[in-house]
C-alpha cells in the first residue's frame, strides 16, 4: 500500500470470522498531511468490514477533531488500504467472510 504517512493496523488478532474488527490508526509522518496535525496519539476504533465505508469513518475523525477536513481523503485511503488487505487475507485463507 502507498505510504500515506497514516498507519492503520489491526488492534486485535483477526480470526477471519468477525465482521467487526478493532483497528488502530496513528500518524507516522505528519509532513505527509496537508493540514496542521495536533499529535493526539493513536486512535482505536472498530470497523464493520461488511457495512462500513472507510471514508465515512475518516469524516467522523475529522468531525471529532482528530484531523482537518483537508486530510479526510488521505485518512480514508489509509483505512481503505488496510481493510482491503484484511479482506484479501481472509479470501486467501478461505475464511467465511
Amino acid at each position: 500500500a502507498e505510504d500515506t504517512g497514516v498507519r492503520v493496523e489491526l488492534n486485535e488478532e483477526d480470526d477471519g470470522k468477525k465482521s467487526t474488527i478493532a483497528l488502530k490508526l496513528w500518524v507516522e509522518d505528519a509532513k505527509k498531511l496537508k493540514g496542521k496535525y495536533k499529535d493526539t496519539g493513536a486512535i482505536e476504533f472498530t470497523f464493520d468490514l461488511q457495512n462500513e465505508v472507510p471514508e465515512v469513518v475518516a469524516q467522523e475523525m475529522v468531525e471529532s477533531g482528530f484531523f482537518l477536513e483537508c486530510d479526510a481523503k488521505i485518512v480514508g485511503k489509509s483505512i481503505r488500504d488496510r481493510v482491503a488487505l484484511i479482506k484479501w487475507r481472509r479470501v486467501r485463507t478461505g475464511s467465511p467472510n
Binding site: W26, M61, F66
Partner: peptide, 27 residues
C-alpha cells in the same frame, strides 16, 4: 491513564492511546 475516549455524534467510539513503541518514523 494515558487513554481518552471520544464518542462521535454518530455513536462511534474512538479511544486515544499512546502510539505503539518504535512505530514513529525518525524525523
Amino acid at each position: 491513564s494515558a487513554t481518552a475516549q471520544v464518542v462521535h455524534s454518530a455513536g462511534r467510539r474512538f479511544i486515544v492511546s499512546p502510539v505503539p513503541e518504535g512505530r514513529l518514523k525518525e524525523p
